[in-house]
Simulated scan of single mutants.
Amino acid sequence: MPEKARIRPVDEADLQEKTLASLAPYRDQDGRIYTIWATLAHHEDALRRFLVFGNHVLGKNTLPLKSRELMILRIAARAQAGYEWDQHVRIARSAGLADETILAAATGTWDGLGEFDQVLLGATDSLLDRQSVDDELWCRLEAHLRVEQIIDVLYTVGQYLTIATVINTLGVQVDGEAALPLPQPVDQKEAAA
C-alpha cells in the first residue's frame, strides 16, 4: 500500500447536496465524513449507488453482527488493508468482541471460536482464495445457515474485498492512532517449518 494517499478526500463543501444526504450516516464521532467515503466522493454518482449496497451488507445483513465483523476483519488482515482493519476493530469492539477474538480471526487461529464462526471464516478464506467453496464447505454452510444468509456471506466477502482493494490502491490512510495493530501476514512456508 502507498505510504500516503494517492487521492485526497473531497472537501465536504465541494459535494452535491444529494451526496451529503447519502453520507449523513457515515460520519465519525466528530461529525466528519469517514475518509473512505470522502475519497470515493470523487465519483459521486457511483458512491451513492455503492452506499445502497454497502448499507445492506453493513446494516441489514442477515448474519449475526459479531460473526460478520470477524469475517470483515479476516478480509482486512489478509488484504493488509489498514484503514478497513482499524474501522472494523472499532466496530467489533463496540459489538462486544475481545481483542483476543479479533486477532484469532485475523491470524487464522480459530480453534477457540465456535463452529459457526469457524465455518464462516473458512468460507471467507475459500472465497478469497478461489472465489468459490467446495462441496464439503457448502454442506457445512447449509448446516448452519439459511440460503439468505449464505448469500449474505457472499455479499459480505465481495463488498469488503472491494473496499480493501480500493483502500490499498488509493492509499486511504488510517485516521489518527490505530485502534489495534494490523497483524502482519505469516509466510505459509515459514508456518509449515
Rank of each mutant, 00 (worst) to 15 (best):
V166F: 06
E148A: 13
D99K: 10
A123C: 11
V52N: 04
T156M: 09
T162K: 05
A143D: 11
L73C: 11
A104T: 14
A76L: 04
I33T: 02
T62H: 12
P185R: 15
L15H: 01
D86C: 05
S132L: 10
K66D: 12
Q118F: 10
L161T: 12
D99E: 15
D28C: 02
A81Q: 02
A143R: 06
Q173Y: 04
L120N: 05
I163N: 04
R32W: 00
K18P: 05
D187G: 09
Q184C: 05
V172H: 00
T107Q: 14
L40H: 02
R27Y: 00
I91H: 02
G59N: 05
L137E: 13
I33R: 00
N61G: 02
R130T: 15
A79C: 05
H88N: 02
F53W: 13
S132M: 10
A79W: 03
Q173P: 01
E69K: 06
V174I: 05
T162M: 12
A81N: 03
D175T: 05
V89D: 05
T101R: 15
V133T: 14
I75D: 01
A24E: 07
L121S: 04
R90S: 07
Q131R: 09
A13K: 08
D117S: 14
L128P: 11
I150R: 12
D28K: 00
E44N: 07
G122K: 13
P185F: 12
D125F: 08
A46D: 08
T165D: 06
T62W: 07
G112W: 06
A92M: 06
D45K: 12
D134G: 14
G31D: 00
D111E: 15
F53N: 05
A41N: 03
W138Y: 14
E69Y: 07
T62R: 14
E190L: 15
I163K: 01
P181M: 07
A192S: 13
T39F: 01
A77N: 05
I33N: 00
A46H: 07
A81H: 01
A21T: 06
